[in-house]
């Protein structure tokens, strides 16, 4: 599935729970590279083979968030800037994936989130090789990444 001797898994999250999990349960399959913002992800993405992405970045600083809170507030939340910022945090993982794809990084990506099927299909249409597993399930994550390879 991966060209590298030990494939590299880019873990993108706002805390360290994914990294801890990957280090414990995925380290026999991947070298884990953890980052905590879109900027770090764009920098680290070259040379990685797959991505494990957190959806909600509720602990991220406002200035590190991707997305225009003002535009979202006007278009989606009747001008409520605070609600728009919260939404950007809650959905940040998808926006980071969008930025990575725009920069040409098309590695298989997996979210640990129980998306409704229609939404997951939308993400796949937008961003290509995207999958999701509903829980922290190491075997399911590996299976999903392999199916997307």
């Amino acid at each position: 599935m991966y060209d590298a001797v030990v494939p590299r898994l880019l873990v993108i999250e706002d805390g360290n729970e994914y990294e801890e999990f990957a280090t414990l349960f995925l380290a026999d399959r991947f070298e884990v590279v953890a980052v905590h913002s879109a900027a770090e992800a764009l920098e680290a993405a070259p040379g990685t083979d797959a991505m494990l992405i957190d959806l909600r970045f509720e602990r991220a600083r406002d200035e590190d968030l991707l997305g225009d809170a003002g535009e979202a507030a006007a278009r989606l939340f009747a001008g409520d800037l605070e609600r728009a910022r919260r939404w950007l945090k809650e959905q940040q993982g998808t926006l980071i994936l969008g930025a990575l794809r725009e920069a040409g990084h098309d590695q298989p990506a997996v979210f640990v989130h129980d998306f409704p099927p229609r939404r997951l299909a939308n993400l796949a249409r937008l961003y290509g090789r995207v999958g999701a597993v509903p829980t922290f399930d190491a075997a399911a994550i590996v299976r999903t990444l392999e199916s997307l390879a």
Partner: peptide, 9 residues
Amino acid sequence: HVELTGEET
């Protein structure tokens, strides 16, 4: 409309 987050409005 499909948002960049995959949600729909």
